[in-house]
Amino acid sequence: MMPDLDQHGHAETKEWTPDVKAPVVMLDRVSKQYGRINALNGVSLGISGGVTGILGMNGAGKSTLFKLLMGKLRASSGAVRLFGTDPWRNSAPYSRVGFVPEHEKLHDWMTAFDFVVTFARLYGLTRDEAKVEATRVLDFVDLKDVMHKKIGQYSKGMRQRVKIAHALVNDPDLIILDEPLQGCDPLARTTIMNVIKELGRMGRTVLVSSHILHEIERITEQIVILHRGRVVALGNSHAIREMLDQHPHKILLECNKPKDVAKSIMDIDEVTGLHFVSDGKLLIETRHLGVVHQQLPDIIVQNGHQVTGIDNPDDDLQSILRYLTGGF
């Protein structure tokens, strides 16, 4: 078999124009198998504009999805399109894409400025254009002051921002960020989240993956939940949570007198169960989490209870996945 070096398409990208009728990202019944393992199974999505969170536990298929979008893998079946073009066959759409990979891909021996300039030139920018653009994006991610220092001297958060800067240097329409917050300290997380939200507000299509629901919810309300290679839910995150109201939610209270607190809470109609988990801990079950959370503070204050902590132990991705998949 002849190697597919010319990508069966127009390697000459000068003439490429995106399909105006097509979504920025489109997957139509896409499956990807690694041997006997189904990494993605019949996934269909169309995304254009705004920030979309791709959520899933490890092994859900997030990275496979991004590799398919970035043309690093070929779909076993189905169609993958960026701007209406198959990225496996034609690398031209990447002129409008910025990709922030999950793993470290930085050149520690280079300065952030040199690194961004080098990869800017691979978009076809001239040397002068690349320098101007590199300065602009490094300023955008708040690294302008230190951009002439070697990347090897940067903290984890700064390195993540260099990765984001190098992906933005071509002013892309589509930005794909694979686990951009992994390993960052709280300050770096906040900075990166603000950058992502800003990109979404500016009308870019941003795909950001994570396995932590709270992180994504701080960035966007639009989420796609993947589980074992399938899309199990998509849409507004609050709406997804609403759908879960048919399932009991749990609220864990830490207090000095759980029995007294339980007596007060029993007055709330929406509470369906109370459990004394251990000394000083009370577990409340309800199907209407919002209503209970609304009434709980007043009841605590009115009855003078000393509550040291309120937690929603099942308000995480794993719990949502458990609900959505029926425990499978």
Partner: peptide, 8 residues
């Protein structure tokens, strides 16, 4: 390969 660089 995240740039418009073909394999060739």
């Amino acid at each position: 390969f995240s740039r418009p660089i073909s394999r060739f």
